[in-house]
Amino acid sequence: METIDLTRPDTAFIREVEKESGQTVSKCYQCGNCSAGCPMSFAYDIPVSRMMRLVQAGQKEAVLSAKSLWMCATCETCTQRCPNNIDVAKVMDVCRHMARREGKGGVYAVKTFWDAFMQSVGMNGKVHEIGLMVMYMLRTGRVFTDVDLAPKALPKGKMSILPHRAKGRKEVADILRRFHEGAADEQKVQARLAAAEQAGKQAATQEGGRS
């Protein structure tokens, strides 16, 4: 095991997690309740209480590379039972967002599934379950995943082969496009808000001058 140098924590990382999640990670006293209640812990490489500890210690690489981020089911049990009122699930959320932004691969199957889901939404405006499955199978090569379910589900009419496309699907695609273009970036929006406020003030002064 490598030695961790505690004198050089990544304080910028700690601050970023705290800002995005709105949580104070130093409130965690490592009782482990989050790990105790986590239903997905069996599939984690790092239990959630240890994830919290790594965030406290500013261990950015360890946190963002953790498979756990991708196996969280967002069931909120950790948040619900935290004795210190920390929204642990939200900390996991923002760490996953950061991992995505940093281009971390995550757990391939999970990330691919979610990406396929988003692509289905982008194409149809809604999720088309069969389309999603096909997309997922093609990308992962797991062509036999859940084939056993098809004979059960298909005759029930639960799986329509053709997607229910929303008329507004272009609008949804635009939302995704704008997101990837960075239209919602915090600084950008903040600057625009400030400019609008400035313009509003000027207009008001002019108005005042005229009257």
Binding site: T74, D93, R96, H97, R100, F113, W114, D115, F117, M118, V121, G125, K126, V127, A166, K167, G168, R169, E171, V172, I175, L176, F179, A184
Partner: peptide
Amino acid sequence: DWTCCGSTPAHTVDHVLSSALAAR
């Protein structure tokens, strides 16, 4: 003409994105 609410996968990407899908 409702569309996807944002649901779990969008939530795992970004909170603003998932909220935008809901807001539509």
